[in-house]
């Protein structure tokens, strides 16, 4: 392994404060540089590691950029058809209620083709965690308009900008889910700064706890970037996200249980 290190004397096992968890495999992530998918995967892997969930976690990966999620986290996985992850997860959890079951879905998967599966799984209060990555674009197919693409935002299928008169409005699925009686904990976070990473991690840890207590559906939306799809550098994309995505998709809890 080629490494570049800082001051050698400090690099001792007893001084270790952060190391990639072994739940993340050695496979190189297929994502573009700076993509929030990788950061979210890592946070999820850390929670699985820290909470000792490897032997009970069953993930459902979507169709989209994160279709190969099962290459990256060393747990059991099922790869679902486009949009169907909440239905797949429903059965996994119903048939193995003692396991930790989650889906990981993008905006196209969760908020367009899988709208019905998402809403109904949440409305039944399925005891699963849904992680929803919203970057306002179809990344894998090369930057097409998503249900969450902002008004005026350009994509390869809205080359003159999303015209809400003909293309409709960005769909706030997380708000819809929060309004359903079956959902228990619904929050919107991001992973582009250390502070936001900490908040997201805390949110996932809460969702793990709620699932153990059979509380109902937890949904964590991560407003994320798509440097390639947005045609920006990663650092620019994070800034653009703060300035444009966050006003439309404000961060914070949408539904928190009374504790």
């Amino acid at each position: 392994m080629v490494e570049f290190s800082g001051i050698k004397e400090i690099i001792k096992p007893e001084n270790l404060v952060y190391k990639k968890t072994n739940i993340m495999t050695e496979n190189i992530l297929s994502y573009c540089p700076g993509c929030g998918h990788g950061t979210t995967h890592r946070i999820l892997a850390e929670i699985i590691d820290e909470e000792g969930l490897q032997s009970e976690a069953i993930g459902v990966s979507p169709v989209g950029c994160s279709v190969f999620l099962y290459y990256y986290l060393d747990i059991d996985w099922q790869e679902a058809a486009h949009g169907r992850a909440p239905a797949v997860a429903t059965a996994i959890k119903r048939l193995q209620p003692e396991k930790f079951v989650f889906t990981y879905q993008g905006d196209g998967d969760l908020a367009a083709i899988g709208t019905a599966e998402t809403i109904h799984a949440c409305n039944r209060g399925e005891n699963i965690l849904i992680i929803f990555i919203n970057n306002g674009i179809y990344g894998m197919t090369g930057g097409q308009m998503a249900p969450t693409t902002l008004p005026g935002m350009k994509s390869s299928t809205s080359p003159y900008g999303r015209d809400v008169k003909t293309m409709g409005y960005p769909l706030k699925m997380t708000e819809i889910v929060a309004s359903l009686p079956g959902s228990y904990y619904v929050t919107r976070q991001s992973v582009h700064t250390p502070a936001n990473v900490k908040k997201t991690k805390k949110a996932i840890r809460k969702a793990v706890k709620y699932q153990k207590l059979n509380k109902g559906t937890c949904l964590i939306e991560i407003v994320s970037n798509c440097p390639s799809g947005w045609k920006m550098t990663p650092v620019q994309s994070n800034k653009w996200m703060e300035e444009n995505m966050f006003p439309y998709y404000p961060l914070g809890d949408l539904k928190t249980p009374e504790e």
Partner: peptide, 23 residues
């Protein structure tokens, strides 16, 4: 477990999920 799904599409994907658990 007996579950009435929201559609035939959801139902068959539940079958996928359950079958994937070896059930």
């Amino acid at each position: 477990i007996v579950l009435q799904a929201e559609s035939e599409v959801a139902a068959i994907n539940m079958v996928y999920g359950g079958a994937g658990c070896g059930k």
